[in-house]
């Protein structure tokens, strides 16, 4: 049972410019009686998300729509537990995996095989888990003998295939993604597509940020439209896409 509850969750980013961030300024501020800090410690704050209230339950396939800067990525990070809300509450129960950047943790100097372990452990798998799935991952990536070569010798396509093959072996309860993962040439794309579907099938809650109407209509059963950090619309895909894309 996975479930996500947001209650008036806000995310405020404090912006410390180079001088405000230094200890010197802090000390001088104290020394001068904090006069400079008239408006709430004199800090600039960017409100990225404001008063989000919603709940997600098993079976929800949520698409996030919104223009650049609407707060989609911040919301994804909030959902994955990287950020804690600066006001309000966000309770997330269930094992979360975030596939925002699938290449994170890949070391170009290490071999493909070593990288499978590194990436896998980073995603929360145990060594024995990975050892068990190793052959399958190598076979899926179609890298053949290259698996024992340093990753820096790979083409960018091969690099992505490796990252994709490892990253999609996890089976989390809650899956967070920024755009649909699609890698490789025509032949590989097909396999990747099938594997992605399998992964999505196995998770209880999917949250995916996207700019694609087709993707949202095909994959999601609920769409949240964010604008300026607030929820503008939260409904079924047809209604929201019609309003968002305008036709």
């Amino acid at each position: 049972m996975a479930c996500i509850e947001f209650n008036n969750a806000c995310v405020d980013f404090p912006i410390y410019n180079a001088s405000a961030r230094s200890l010197k300024k802090r000390l001088i501020q104290v020394a001068t009686g904090g006069k400079i800090s008239s408006n709430e410690q004199g800090r600039v704050i960017v409100r990225a998300l404001e008063d989000l209230t919603f709940s997600l339950n098993d079976g929800d396939r949520v698409g996030l729509l919104g223009h650049n800067g609407a707060g989609k990525s911040t919301l994804l990070r909030l959902l994955s537990g990287v950020y804690a809300p600066s006001a309000g509450t966000a309770s997330i129960s269930g094992e979360v995996a975030s596939l925002i950047d699938i290449s994170l943790g890949i070391d170009p100097e290490a071999s493909g095989r070593e990288n499978i372990f590194m990436r896998g452990i980073l995603l929360g798998m145990t060594k024995s888990d990975i050892a068990e799935k190793l052959e399958e991952i190598i076979e899926f990536s179609e890298l053949g003998d290259f698996i024992d070569m340093p990753v820096r010798t790979y083409s960018s396509g091969m690099h992505l295939r490796l990252a994709f093959a490892v990253s999609t072996t996890i089976r989390p309860e809650i899956l967070i993604m920024d755009e649909w993962l699609s890698v490789g040439d025509e032949g590989f794309k097909h396999k990747a597509e099938a594997r992605m579907n399998e992964l999505v099938e196995a998770t209880s809650i999917l949250v995916i940020a996207s700019h694609s109407r087709d993707l949202v209509l095909h994959t999601c059963n609920r769409v949240i439209w964010l604008e300026h950090g607030k929820i503008k619309m939260d409904s079924d895909p047809e209604t929201v896409t019609r309003a968002y894309f305008g036709h």
Binding site: R77, S80, G81, V82, I100, L104
Partner: peptide
Amino acid sequence: ESIIKQLPI
């Protein structure tokens, strides 16, 4: 930073 901002480790 890059890990902290991506994965809840």
